[in-house]
């Protein structure tokens, strides 16, 4: 009887958790090799060749990785600084609720808000005009849909940093960093040594997998770069959807090539991060 329930549970797990992912991956692989698809007529490697030789995937991957790396680094840096410098203040009743508020803002709203503030006819452009710093809207610097992805990075930071502040505050409390710091101080460590040799290593060791996980999430971000990104290069998810949903049916397979490569990369990342029973699951649940 016990085994029967267990087998039913396992069956549902496979049906919901494994089959859709496997089906999506196999279908994408078949499409990318021309085996399935409306205008495809049999196995071919030409879509892979054209995708890999065009260089668009690598450009997009490099662009996405750079944006994700910069956003995560700045977010984690700022969050660590805030969590260590303002531990007591951020745990006070009102502030402890206020710092949760950014979690209520989805990516699409954050991107819309950034656009409203930093576009050429946006709030800061209007303010600059009133202050006499601009004579025309076009003089306002390109901060959205720009080549350096400033708008995207700003939006990512505002979305990711609050999460890390909460995470670090939690780790600070659970790992008793305050006690460790006092101990280090009583043993003669300077405030600088306490920060660099005690607090930061303890907090980063406990959270590095989540930092990597956020890097991967940002790598596949969609709505923010869709609103705030430029035409070329595009971030990975935007590129995949653009290719798959385009009107030229002969090019759709190339979109699936990018989707397959992206899936392999994130799957390998998942294997590297989670194959051994890491503490990430606990960290995700705890935070």
């Amino acid at each position: 009887m016990k085994n029967k329930y267990s087998n039913i549970g396992l069956l549902f797990f496979v049906l919901i958790g494994v089959v859709p992912f496997a089906a999506a991956f196999i279908y994408s692989v078949l499409y990318s090799f021309g085996v399935v698809g409306v205008v495809n007529d049999g196995f071919t490697t030409r879509f892979w060749e054209s995708s890999l030789t065009s260089g668009e995937f690598f450009k997009s991957f490099g662009y996405s990785a750079a944006i994700a790396a910069v956003s995560v680094t700045i977010s984690v840096g700022l969050a660590l600084w805030l969590a260590l410098k303002f531990t007591k203040e951020l745990n006070r009743k009102l502030l402890s609720f206020v710092i949760y508020l950014p979690l209520a803002i989805p990516g699409v709203v954050a991107a819309f808000f950034t656009f409203q503030l930093f576009s050429k006819a946006g709030f800061f452009s209007r303010l600059s005009y009133k202050l006499g710093w601009l004579e025309e809207a076009r003089q306002f610097p390109d901060l959205v849909n720009d080549q350096y992805a400033i708008g995207i990075i700003l939006t990512f930071i505002t979305g990711v940093m609050p999460f890390f502040v909460l995470l670090f505050l939690n780790v600070y409390k659970n790992e008793r960093v305050a006690d460790l710091s006092r101990l280090a101080y009583s043993l003669g460590a300077t405030p600088r040594q306490i920060t660099w040799r005690v607090s930061l290593p303890v907090m980063l060791r406990k959270t590095w997998t989540l930092v990597v996980l956020y890097f991967i999430f940002l790598l596949g971000a969609y709505e923010v770069p869709l609103i705030l990104g430029q035409e070329s290069p595009q971030m990975l998810s935007v590129l995949v959807i653009r290719e798959i949903k385009q009107y030229d049916l002969t090019k759709i397979s190339e979109g699936y090539v990018v989707a397959v490569i992206y899936t392999i990369i994130v799957s390998l990342a998942a294997i590297l991060l989670f194959s051994k029973k890491s503490k990430t699951t606990e960290a995700i649940v705890d935070n």
Binding site: T263, S275, T281
Partner: peptide
């Protein structure tokens, strides 16, 4: 079921694949 299964780690790893993938790409492939 997953947590009490002898192959818990493998099953949990399988769970991470759709979790870590961009939903929009997952949706497009599905």
């Amino acid at each position: 079921t997953v947590s009490y299964h002898p192959r818990k780690n493998t099953l949990t790893l399988l769970t991470y694949f759709p979790y870590i993938m961009a939903p929009v790409v997952f949706g497009a492939c599905l």
